[in-house]
Structure formats: C-alpha cells, structure tokens
Amino acid sequence: MVEVALKLCLVYWFITWLDTYILSWQCLTRPIVVAPIAGLVMGDLQTGIIMGASLESVFMGISAIGGSIPADVTTGTIIATAFTILTNADMETAISLSLPIGTVMASINSMFTPVWAAFAPYLKKLATGGNLKKYEIISHVINIFIPLVPAVVMFFAVAYGVEGLESLIASLPAWVMTGLSAASSMMLAVGFAILTAMIWSKEIGYFFFAGYVLVAYLSMDTLAIAILGAIVAVTLFLQEKRSLDLENKITKLVSEGNVSANSEEEDFF
C-alpha cells in the first residue's frame, strides 16, 4: 500500500507541476486525464478510464476560476480511483466520496496560501534586483514545493486511509449506502448549477432547455448537440454582426444626408 501511495503521490505532483506551472493548460489535472493515469499506475487502466468519465461529470462545474477553488479536483479523483481499485469498492460510493475529499484537500491547500503569498515581496525584490538567474531559479523551486503539500497529505490518505475507509464502509447500515449513491447522482447537479449560474443571463438562459430537450426526448449524442449548438451560436453571431453593420451604415447615411441637405439649403438661399 505504501509503495502504491508513493507512486500516486509522484503522479499527482508531476501532473500538477507540468499542467499548472509549465503548460498552464488546466487540462491534464482534470479527472478524465488523471483517473486513467492513476488506474494505469495501479494496474487497472480500464477502471481508471471509466472512473475518469464519471468523475469528470461530477467535477464538471468545478474549476479554478478567479483563483478560488471549491474542491481540489485532482486529489479527489486520485483518492476515489485508488479507493475503487485497491479495495474493489463500488464506483458510486467512491464517486460520492470524491467531492467531500476534494473539498477537504482544497481547504488544506488554502491553509498554505498565506505561506506562498509571503514570498511575494522577496520575489519582487529579486526580479528588480538585476540577478535574473537567481530570481528564475527561486521561482522554479517554489513551483516544485507548492504541489508537494497536497501530494504529501494524499500519500498518507492513500497509504493508511484506504484500509480504514474499507472497514468503515463494511460496517455501515444499508440506508447509508443507498443515501450515498442517491447523493452521488444528485451531486452532479451541484457542478452543473455552478456552471449554469455563471453562464445564465435573461437573454440567453432559455437555451439551456434546447440542450435539455434534445437529450431528454431525442437521446442525442453530446457531439451532435455541440454541432447543432455551434450552428445556433454562429447564426446568432452573424445576425448580430449584420445588425451592427446596418446600424453603422444608417448612422453614416444619416450624417451624410444631413451634410447634403445642408449644402442644398446653402444653394437655395
């Protein structure tokens, strides 16, 4: 267990470092990428891939926008995947646990934010001090340390927590498991609600139901809906562009019309 935990800890650290600090994609740390890699490390790629799909839909609405992260998506994913593969637990149970785990990890991370912020004046001094090499090296060292904190916490959670979690699950009454699995399918509504609240406006909000009906009544594929959605979006964009062009043209014509009317008037008098 310790060896697997160490491997997962390294996977977490490397992916976070590469994705956040070197590529700045915020893409490789998503469950759909992390879960298959974690699965591969534990020797069960197939479960990892399927977990990735479920966890990605759970964490869909949760991403670092404006610097505040409600749940640490990556650690939540790795621990949930480890829990499923290492203890042969039910996927739904693991998924319903991933959000609370991610939330706890996010609060551990936020405890350390003041520590990293304390480096700000020092970095500023180095950057303006003329020693560029030293500034660059120290920045890179800080980058290495920031994801190390959750990595270490996660190591202990996987190494010593999974077995404890397993025996705990076995001793729970049936309604707890039913409740957790009901909560996990409703948990998806939290992520989608965050997204909806962010995108929703009176002008465009009703388009939500276009997508909803296409799936609920016609069971269409997401890619097909994306294509239809793109057609609607492009059409609306072009229409707005046309009316804007027209508006500009009218303004221009009106101002020109005024000019000619003035000159006629001058001729007349």
């Binding site: 998806l188 509504a189 997508g211 799936v215 609607v232």
Partner: peptide
C-alpha cells in the same frame, strides 16, 4: 456578440449534460 454566442453554445451543452447525467432516484 462573441461572448454571447459562446455562452449560448455553453449553456446548450450544460442543458444537454444535465438531462443525461443529473437524476433524482
């Protein structure tokens, strides 16, 4: 207009995925 068009596409996809994934059992 650009932001609006992107939001329309986004919310259509959110609606579609809500329909296929969110359920109250």
């Amino acid at each position: 207009s650009f932001t609006k068009a992107a939001s329309i596409l986004g919310i259509i996809m959110v609606g579609a995925m809500t329909a296929s994934m969110v359920s109250v059992p």
